[in-house]
């Protein structure tokens, strides 16, 4: 999209018709490929359980979406809404706080000279390579020692960590926050913390949005940690809740419909987050790359 737009309006670069159609074709295929499952989900969510098996999976039968949503919200005293709220708390909270922490770390690594800086940075970087999956069990054992498993904090605290965010923040702070500006702020009598919040974060905004989005998605999708940590259904995030319903489909087949509607509703926050923030994200990625 962004590649083609300027060339249409300004005509600076002329590409052959062939390459243009080629690009469009690839994108069209990609779009269909990515959107079909979501379309299927939407269509499936609008059907009653009888129609679900017996009608065309990619086209509507009777439109029961709102009845289905009503059923979902009513099922077991609205436990689904509770899960959604939990997910928003885990994800939103961890992404906000995690972004702040990553930004501070990255900024400190970029702008302050201290002994062991590169070592520290390399240690953080190596954290990027360790998958969250591999950490879930050790974390469980650690939290067991302090008897904090099966609590809100057992999922929230580990979710705050984001080594990739630190990396991104450092790179971006190096590139976009001039030392002279910081000098000027110091001379004007601004403290370090105030400078960070009033000056540096403003300059780092695109990177912060990117970090936030990455972090948001990572925490939202981190399934194994809550699976291992939590045994109280009231603390489940929506992913784990839907999964546990899905494992019971053999026993209670009506859950299949609820899982599908729940899945549709559970992706809406992600879609909204992306639609609102994607512009920042693109800027952020581009800026980092060119410098």
């Amino acid at each position: 999209m962004s590649v083609l737009a300027p060339e249409n309006t300004k005509g600076k670069v002329r590409e052959s018709l062939f390459s243009r159609t080629g690009a469009m074709l690839i994108m069209a295929v990609g779009t269909v490929y990515f959107l079909t499952p979501i379309w299927w989900l939407f269509v499936g969510a609008s059907k009653s359980s009888e129609e679900f098996t017996s009608t065309n999976p990619l086209w509507f039968a009777d439109f029961d979406l709102f009845t289905n949503i009503g059923d979902l919200f009513a099922y077991r005293d609205g436990v689904f809404l509770r899960w959604m709220l939990n997910s928003v708390l885990y994800t939103g909270g961890a992404a906000l706080l995690g972004t702040l922490i990553a930004a501070m770390c990255g900024y400190a690594l970029a702008k302050y000279q201290f002994r062991g800086r590169e070592l520290l940075f390399n240690v953080v970087l190596s954290g990027v390579l360790v998958p969250a999956t591999a950490l879930a069990l050790p974390l469980f054992l650690i939290f067991s020692k302090v008897e904090m498993t099966n609590t809100f904090w057992s999922v929230f605290l580990p979710s705050l960590v984001n080594p990739f965010g630190v990396y991104l923040a450092r790179i971006y702070a190096t590139a976009s926050v001039p030392d002279d500006l910081l000098e000027a702020a110091r001379i004007d009598g601004s403290g370090e913390i105030r400078t960070f919040f009033k000056v540096s974060t403003r300059l780092m905004t695109p990177a912060l949005v990117t970090i936030f989005l990455f972090h948001f998605v990572a925490v939202w999708n981190n399934f194994l940690l809550p699976l291992i940590m939590l045994s109280d259904e009231r603390l489940f995030p929506v992913t784990l809740g839907l999964y546990s319903w899905n494992t019971q489909v053999n026993q209670i087949p009506e859950l299949r419909g609820l899982v599908i509607i729940g899945a549709l509703l559970s992706i809406t926050p992600l879609v909204i987050a992306f639609l609102f923030l994607q512009r920042f994200w693109r800027n952020g990625l581009g800026a980092g790359a060119v410098k």
Partner: peptide, 18 residues
């Protein structure tokens, strides 16, 4: 009472971890 996914879906593994 605490509920979650079925046994092979994760609850057994949780028991082993616990």
């Amino acid at each position: 009472v605490q509920t979650g996914p079925n046994g092979n879906g994760g609850t057994y593994q949780n028991f082993f971890n616990q």
